[in-house]
Design a protein around this nucleic acid. Structure first.
Lengths: 362, 362
DNA sequence: TTGAAAGCGCTAACAA
DNA sequence: TTGTTAGCGCTTTCAA
């Protein structure tokens, strides 16, 4: 069995109507659950539909109603547990409200994101949730808005576009993390991220790159500067592409004459790479380097030492984005809104005083 | 700017045709990239389309062509990095072949899976990749097949349906893992999974539950039985729902009079819960309990001790499933095929001889 | 190469 | 409550 018998012609309302001996519109009303239908007809239609194996054609339906009951979600990388959890929050919420979710994975590549946006517009999704790859290049996002579809930004906002945003207060928590390191005696604090960022932006006061990253950097630099540290940006590292890249960057940093005494990793994937490489280099956390990572997953408590982390309410962010979008689709809200979720610095054991801060080790 | 100006009527081929002063069909041919069009016309159409901000309506197109260029993927839980990676493999491959991916997350709930299948059929996806929740309840999968759409099973096969399957040789590697434990002197080996499984099945020789889990259990029990261990199934634990469930099960197991001396966790999420709870109980790996987990992520090498794991070629499995499906959609293959990928037992340091196996500890 | 017209499967508007 | 008639926006005949 099951040799695909060549896509047989789909059973349509017309077929059902014929067998049930009613007009097409009547069968359609019954099948689609709209309009009024007598019990008698409903049953005959039901029977005929089942006998024929009728399945509604969602495309045709959407074409008429102008709605697809579908939400398009565009994220950087579902392989990153951060997005995995966020997407889970979105799909759970969407499903509960009767929406399906189309997901596109961009690998943090702008062109893929642009493509996905176009495809989703062509598929006539009812709304978008996007974690944009770029802070400044947003024409495709404008296209979405111009197509009349609501768009909610997840985890990152963009320049010049006044949109709903659901994100975490990265700057505040990054500043807190840096402050914690400063309080522990660190002055050379590194930050490693996969994403791009134009360092010149910091100097000019502009924001270039992905906003969540910018915010983190701003928070860290603000704390360092306030503490009187000079040139704190010399320990910033961008573009650390997965795996090998992260390790190379870590090695490079630690081989500096004035190597950092503390590292902040921008996500859990990066953290794993950094920690692996530190171990490879024979360096111990926190004796040789202190360490803080963005995101909190259970393994962070299992490793030695348990990691001091920045816990983000990821699932909740996903839920909030979906709720907001659906409210928008259904016309229940107006005016763009920023929802800023707090993140928490969770103190564990990967931060200690640096070796060489002039105080006795013990 | 960007106050959604109420979904303005979409620009259609008719609009473009009018502005370009050609017939609708001509504009459509140009815009759709089919049929023959003169350069002159192409340019006029192009210009008009851009001026108007034309976006093709994918629904209308699909209705005519009968193809949607979309693959429906239904998985148990994208929050589980296993599926995250597999989905990445699928989307990468699909995109390269010009297909979009619609993802549905079932939370391992059969009803959600059935629903997702129906919705995707209604959306007229060109084909399906499903990691089925149930081994025996497969009517919805039959529906898919009967609708004439190709279906490739991922990670798990099902009863009675002759379909393409891409999975890992779970039984073989599970047997190897159990054998390794046996060789290290273990006789009381526990296995913990989130999924359901009917234990009676083992006795009757039938297979009840998700196939990948069945295979693992069969492998483990086969090895244990061959080694002369009696009643090995008494250490099997199912239905360990995320978080609390896993911890409860772990605690229950370790408080047994004859507690297991080794534990195999069915995935990385479970492993984290088990390890947390073991630590909570003051138990050390591998001194008090040996431990093996399915799946290999970098944190497994970072914790103390580094985990002995079963590494699966997850990304490759996703790629193979997508390739197979696309070949099927495009009619390039016939006859169902089972692709079995090998998994590898990676020896690290979480397995040791049990405390009380009669030999001296050191 | 272009145009006119028909039709994909459904919903919506209007009558009966 | 039911039927008839138009479309939705596109592709696809079939002619010109």
């Amino acid at each position: 069995m099951n040799e695909p018998t060549g896509r047989r012609r789909d059973v349509t309302v017309a077929d059902v109507a014929r067998d049930a001996k009613v007009a097409k519109a009547t069968a359609a009303r019954s099948l689609g659950g709209y309009g009024a239908v007598s019990d008698d007809v409903r049953q005959r239609v039901q029977a005929a539909a089942e006998a024929l194996g009728y399945h509604a054609n969602g495309l045709a339906r959407s074409m008429n109603t102008g709605r697809s009951n579908t939400i398009g979600v565009i994220v950087g990388d579902i392989e990153n547990p951060y997005f995995g959890v966020a997407v889970r929050g979105i799909t759970d919420t969407a499903k509960a409200a009767g929406y399906d979710v189309i997901l596109a994975n961009t690998g943090e590549q702008l062109e893929v994101e642009i493509d996905a946006a176009r495809v989703f517009v062509e598929k006539r999704v009812d709304g978008f949730i996007v974690a944009p790859t770029s802070f400044t290049i947003t024409d495709h996002l404008s296209d979405i808005v111009n197509s009349g579809r609501p768009l909610v930004l997840l985890d990152r906002h963009v320049d010049n576009l006044d949109l709903d945003v659901v994100e975490v207060d990265n700057e505040k928590v990054a500043r807190a993390a840096a402050q914690h390191l400063i309080d522990s005696g660190h002055e050379r604090v590194a930050f490693i991220t996969t994403l791009e960022f134009e360092l010149s932006a910091y100097r000019t006061g502009a924001e270039l790159g992905v906003s969540s990253v910018s915010a983190r950097i701003n928070g860290i630099l603000a704390a360092m500067t306030a503490a009187g540290v000079e040139n704190p940006e010399r320990y910033l590292r961008f573009d650390a592409n997965s795996g090998a890249g992260v390790k190379g960057v870590t090695r490079e940093l630690m081989q500096l004459d004035e190597a950092p005494t503390a590292i902040i990793a921008s996500d859990s994937l990066i953290a794993m790479g950094v920690l692996s490489e530190l171990r490879q280099l024979g360096l111990t956390v926190p004796d040789d380097v202190s360490f803080i990572m963005f995101d909190d997953f259970e393994w962070a408590t299992l490793i030695d030492p348990p990691l001091t982390v920045i816990a983000q309410p990821v699932y909740e962010v996903g839920v909030a984005a979906a709720k907001r979008l659906i409210a928008r689709i259904e016309g229940r809200v107006t005016g763009p809104l920023l929802q800023l979720f707090p993140a928490t610095l969770v103190h564990r054991e990967s931060v200690a005083r640096p070796r060489s801060d002039g105080r006795p080790d013990a």
